[in-house]
């Protein structure tokens, strides 16, 4: 199954390479990876989605901990966590179907962020299931371009992930 790991690392050059090199070298698959700054400028936060059984996830976690620049890893998969992903979808929508597309956008609480003559760009945020669903709903109209940010996650409540 897919696991979401929230990984805090030193914000130093080359740390991303250290992490991805470990995944590549040991044959683990990264489903998605996002990295960005945190409230502390010396620390970055990676959200890594990995496919694998418990044994693989345990190995991934232990091997990550062996990297000197990795500070903390939390597997938020089964925790109470907020997970979000952002996606931009360019969908073919001339005048004849535009109303129908806009209805789907409405249902998913997505937003239209650009209108062209024959297409729309739609912005969606949500968890992966919602994004998969809207993608599915829009596919019949013809998706000409799609870009996903990958998942970010944060534990609910007081404890810091």
């Amino acid at each position: 199954m897919k696991h979401t790991l929230a990984v805090t690392v030193d914000n130093k050059p080359g740390v991303l390479t250290r992490v991805t090199t470990m995944f590549r070298r040991r044959g683990f698959n990264i489903d998605s990876l996002t990295v960005g700054a945190t409230e502390n400028p010396t620390i970055s936060r990676m959200t890594i989605v990995v496919e694998g059984d418990d044994q693989i996830i345990e190995q991934v976690t232990k091997q990550l901990y062996k990297l000197v620049n990795v500070i903390k890893i939390v597997d938020v998969t089964n925790e109470r966590a907020v997970e979000r992903e952002l996606v931009l979808i360019k969908v073919k929508a001339d005048a004849s179907v535009r109303a129908e597309v806009m209805q789907i956008v409405e249902i998913f609480r997505a937003r239209i962020v650009d209108i062209g003559k024959n297409n729309l760009i739609i912005e969606v945020t949500g968890d992966s299931a919602k994004i998969d669903a809207i993608e599915e709903a829009l596919r019949p109209f013809g998706i000409s371009e799609l870009v996903r940010t990958g998942k970010i996650a944060m534990l609910r409540g007081g404890c810091k992930g």
Binding site: Q55, E58, Q59, K62, Q63, Y65, K66
Partner: peptide
């Protein structure tokens, strides 16, 4: 000493 060796 290396936790990653356990169960590898």
């Amino acid at each position: 000493i290396d936790a990653a060796e356990i169960g590898k």
